[in-house]
Amino acid sequence: MARTAEPLLRVEQLETQFFTRAGVARAVDGVSFEVARGEVLGLVGESGSGKSVTGFSILGLVDPPGRIVGGRVLLEGENLVDAGERRLRALRGNRIAMIFQDPMMTLNPVLRIDTQMIEAVRAHHGVDRAEARRRARDALGRVGIPAPEERLSAYPHQFSGGMRQRVAIAIALLNEPAVIIADEPTTALDVTIQAQILYEMQKLCGESGTALVWITHDLAVVSGLADRVCVMYAGRIVESGPVDAVLDRPRHPYTAGLIGSVPSRNRRGVPLAQIPGMTPSLLALPGGCAFRTRCPNAEADCAAEPPAERRPEAGRTLRCHHPVGEAVS
């Protein structure tokens, strides 16, 4: 894959913590990754692994009691963590856009679609309403909404879930951003609609060179869509690399567990494998490696200290003391 030297978006040692009464939750704990122009990065993890908070942190949309406490988010070389609210506002929806999980909740129910689209254009470009409306109509057309001119005057409740997500995608695409963060945008949709939207997102981003960070818990989606994948567990990236390599030869026991628990036609009748236990509470993480309480490979040294990041092969990272397929020492 061809990559430019400087990535569009580079996240370095990002740390976001929630200061609750019960204690400090380290939702994002030293996350680093980068996305190049036209690249699709899959950010995979269970609920509560910190993948959505990572997305919100990148846009500076973490609400109190949460706060970014460390690290850098470099968008085209500019550090967003240090940027002021005014500068962030100028970038949000313009250079970097976000699509949310639940399309039924993302659009304001009392405002017409055109109002919600025109304001997104006019927040960043000094164009008149007619021009903004024309751009909105074109964007609706691009995401496959039939009769976009008439649909502009409709209210969100007059759309189905899939159509609403298309509208949200159209809004994200409006100002031709460099990066789109998509937070499980197809989770709430039917499988057939899901496939259509995945296909279109891939096509649209490929055409415009937009980088895409696709947050999901669905490995099947990642395998079909992403170029590279980061697997998150308890606020950390435990494994990353090119999507084929990671999914074919997972090194981290957690990744292997996730892949093993995907239902498959080839294993009909065989009980589905699952990862024992549940995602630990971020307020009460086990010491050492956070995954060790659920890990089949765990040994005494896993409790001693958290595994450092290492590079088992070119383009891959791994945080594990006892990776899959490595002789026990």
């Binding site: 846009l59 949000r92 949310f100 304001e119």
Partner: peptide, 23 residues
């Protein structure tokens, strides 16, 4: 979510409050 989405669009706080929330 629609308030957060409005902020993610880069709207000014006054637009978010006096249009999206107030209505």
């Amino acid at each position: 979510d629609y308030v957060k989405f409005a902020r993610a669009k880069g709207l000014s706080p006054s637009r978010v409050i006096y249009v999206h929330v107030l209505k």
